[in-house]
Design a protein around this nucleic acid. Structure first.
Length: 744
DNA sequence: CTCCTTTGTCTTTTT
DNA sequence: GACAAAGGAG
């Protein structure tokens, strides 16, 4: 009896296949984390591989943390020597050691999206670009896309020749990167990019890490982008013991540069690789998988793989459409309450949305229904203004070249240093290609700045110098105290006395306790280390311990599972999103479909789909048709009569989705390779649906078996029929969906 | 330089 | 409808 006995045939194969490249295609809920953890255990215990020769890379801190814990539990002593971390934090560790070889220094700052945006804005301004034509957002996306492909500013410039717009973007990229260098700062993409660059130009450094990591494992491989793939190739090219785990059907970050081709190209680069498929799902019921499979099979770009399960049939997935999103949220709240009353916990439920904005209604209605809930996403703790302000002080102290940090707080709290002064200092700094802080230290040399203003700036510089001295003592909490005190930041909030100010003070206190926590738990705490954690750790890493319903986007639900899952807003324009429909891009639509697949496969016991006829979007009332993804589900797997709130099942429901879905379904933009069953099959054009049975007749349902018709109610173009099934009891459904056959 | 009003914008987002 | 950014008055 060993720990490997609990694995199935394919899982065991994957665990024992330790040498050489391995491509593991693992469907949703097929136990891939289990395999990875067992594989690490096997390497250490059976193959006697040293723990520090093993590296496991994940995308999220949450995944890393979970794997870390499971490895520690299974292996115990020595396990902590193997690296289990995200791409980004691995890169930071590598860069802190050798980045000086690239002209940066080890105390580099990490710029988050906000810093990035501000810097780009400055660059656009200095280039005098029309921000209508060249939006910050577009520039950020373009630069990010370039870095994800490991395209340098110079290469980008070269490629862009002859293309007016791209030439202009190239200039932004060049300037942006120059500014980052002056600021001794790296953006998120740089963390990967610069590591790859380091490896490329310094073979000795690469070899050091190749020797270090002889066994490499990569989770969620389908979400790797170009530069991440290069990073993996570089590290693994010597020992070639590389195991990647992915599922092409769960690739939902293409918009962020993830490239499914990395799965296909893996075999090109590592031709000797073994491919193992994990197709047995242990998470969901047959019904849930049927729903997920019937939608995902409409995608053309897929690897050959079919998920199956030995689990029970389970309950039929329901679909319901409500008058508006308030009714929808109420119905969901109601259903949650009912199931909780019969013994479930609140934490067994998740409401998954396409967009964060959809969460708001649930916040409101769950409050009314007294249902404990937590909203994941939205404004994270570290992006609150007061936290960002104080972090900027700490970042500046850690890296005096950090221009974004400096510019953020030079006048926070207000100390009479305005925009024009900032611009004057900036100009001075740009001319000399020095950091903003250094320019500010030389303020008396800037002729355009008045004596009075210069005095204020000198005082600020002096204060930062004081902070730097305190920081050198190594006590972060003490530094924090000095900062909030000396700057008057805390005092200002106290004087304000508003509810809002009190909130902010609380947040700052929480932030301080995070500092203390860090100092107590870290082996070698440092300001730099703390700031790295702050930059890389996101709020989603929250504990799931409290008993509450989770409300979040499908994106953030990836890798999670819940007994009961509600996919709300199953509407054209919401899911699939408005942008995707308009772009007419098949690839984008396939990504939305994969997103549905990810959402549906989160459910263990029961899945609910719902839509609203009317909802507020961006301050405007919108009337949406039912999502095409609902169309694509084989009707036998769906129960169209809502168990939630039958009154919301309006009489014109059937007519509504028939007429509204049809024109959409006929547009060629998303014609599907295998024509799925459509509602129009059930109803012949616009003529009313005809039935050949009456009350008292014996009928047969494809799923529920035989029963007796109890009641028939005409609803315009359809009939609502109440049938007492011999095995399933009384159910109400629409004649067109139920497809009842009269028994002779 | 600061404060207040108007205008614009709006997917998803592991780090 | 919510929030940031830009513009104008004090």
């Amino acid at each position: 009896m060993s720990i490997y006995d609990s694995l199935n045939q394919e899982q065991r194969e994957a665990v024992f296949c330790t040498d050489g490249p391995l491509l593991l295609l693992a469907g949703a809920g097929s136990g891939k984390t289990r395999v990875l953890v067992h594989r690490i255990a096997y390497l250490i215990e059976e193959k006697k591989v040293k723990p520090w020769n093993i590296m496991a890379i994940t995308f999220t801190n949450k995944a890393a943390k979970e794997m870390r814990e499971r490895v520690d539990d299974m292996i115990g002593y020595g396990a902590s020597d193997c690296w289990v971390s995200t791409f980004h934090s691995s890169c930071v560790r590598i860069l802190r050691r050798d980045i000086d070889k690239l002209g940066y220094s080890a105390n580099f700052s990490i710029y988050d999206t906000d810093d990035q945006k501000r810097l780009i804005k400055e660059v656009l301004k200095s280039l005098q670009y029309d921000t209508k034509q060249f939006s910050e957002r577009a520039m950020m996306n373009a630069i990010s896309a370039a870095k994800e492909q490991y395209i340098s500013p110079a290469e980008y410039m070269e490629d862009a020749v002859g293309d007016f717009r791209r030439e202009k973007i190239a200039k932004v990229y060049v300037n942006y990167q120059k500014q980052l260098e002056t600021a001794n700062a790296l953006d998120f993409d740089d963390l990967l990019y610069k590591t790859v660059e380091l490896f490329e130009h310094h073979p000795d450094v690469l070899e050091y890490w190749q020797e270090r990591f002889r066994y490499i494992m990569v989770d969620e491989y389908q979400d790797t982008n170009g530069v991440q793939f290069i990073f993996i190739k570089q590290l693994a090219s010597k020992y070639r013991n590389i195991c990647v785990v992915g599922d092409d059907d769960q690739s939902i970050y293409k918009f962020r540069g993830a490239d499914v081709r990395n799965i296909l190209e893996f075999e090109d680069f590592f031709p000797e690789s073994t491919v193992i498929k994990l197709e047995q799902n242990y998470r969901s019921t047959k019904n849930i998988l049927n729903v997920a499979n019937s939608v995902i099979r409409n995608n053309t770009a897929r690897m050959d793989k079919t998920l199956y399960t030995d689990n029970d049939e389970g309950e039929t997935t329901t679909f319901a459409q409500y008058q508006d999103n308030y009714k929808e949220a109420e119905a969901i709240a109601d259903e949650v309450s009912k199931i909780v009353a019969s013994g479930a916990n609140y934490k067994d439920f998740a409401v998954l949305n396409r967009t964060n904005a959809q969460s708001r209604v649930f916040e409101e209605k769950f409050g009314v229904y007294n249902i404990p809930y937590k909203i994941v996403g939205g404004v994270s703790f570290y992006s609150r203004m007061e936290i960002r302000d104080i972090v900027a002080y700490l970042k500046l102290v850690n890296n005096l070249s950090d221009d974004q940090a400096m510019k953020r707080i030079i006048n926070v709290p207000r100390r009479g240093i305005g925009q024009t002064t900032v611009e004057k200092i900036n100009e001075f700094a740009m001319e000399r290609e020095i950091a903003f802080f250094d320019a500010a230290s030389m303020v008396e040399e800037i002729s355009t700045i008045s004596k009075a203003t210069a005095k204020k700036i000198a005082a600020f510089v002096e204060m930062i110098d004081d902070f730097t001295e305190i920081a050198d003592k190594g006590d972060i909490a003490e530094l924090y105290d000095k900062v909030v005190e000396e700057t008057g930041y805390l005092n200002n909030l106290v004087l304000e006395g508003t509810e809002d100010a009190k909130d902010r003070i609380n947040n700052l206190e929480e932030f301080k306790s995070k500092i203390v926590d860090y100092e107590n738990n870290e082996a070698e705490p440092s300001l730099q280390g703390f700031l790295t954690d702050v930059a890389l750790i996101s709020e989603v890493d929250n504990l799931v311990s409290d008993d509450a319903v989770t409300v979040m986007t499908i994106h953030s639900a990836k890798g999670l599972e819940f007994p009961y899952v509600f996919l709300s807003g199953m509407e054209e324009g919401i899911f699939p999103g408005y942008m995707t429909i308009n772009s007419g891009n098949d690839d984008d639509m396939e990504e939305e479909r994969r997103l549905f697949y990810v959402g549906a496969t989160r459910a263990e016991k029961r899945l609910y789909l719902s839509a609203s006829k009317r909802r507020m979007v961006n301050g405007q009332q919108q009337f949406n048709k039912v999502s095409r993804f609902v169309d694509e589900i084989d009707r036998e797997y769906l129960n169209f009569s809502p168990t939630v709130d039958s009154s919301a099942f309006s009489s014109d429901f059937a007519a509504d989705i028939f007429t509204k879905t049809k024109p959409v379904a006929m547009k060629p933009a998303y014609t599907l390779k295998s024509e799925p069953k459509k509602y129009k099959d059930a109803v012949k054009d616009d003529s009313p649906f005809e039935i050949d049975y009456k009350v008292g007749d014996r009928v047969r349902h494809i799923k529920f078996g035989s029963g007796t018709v109890k009641e028939i109610t005409p609803t315009g173009s359809d009939y609502e029929v109440l049938v007492d099934y011999d095995l399933r009891g009384v159910r109400r459904s629409f004649a067109s969906f139920a497809k009842l056959k009269k028994e002779e």
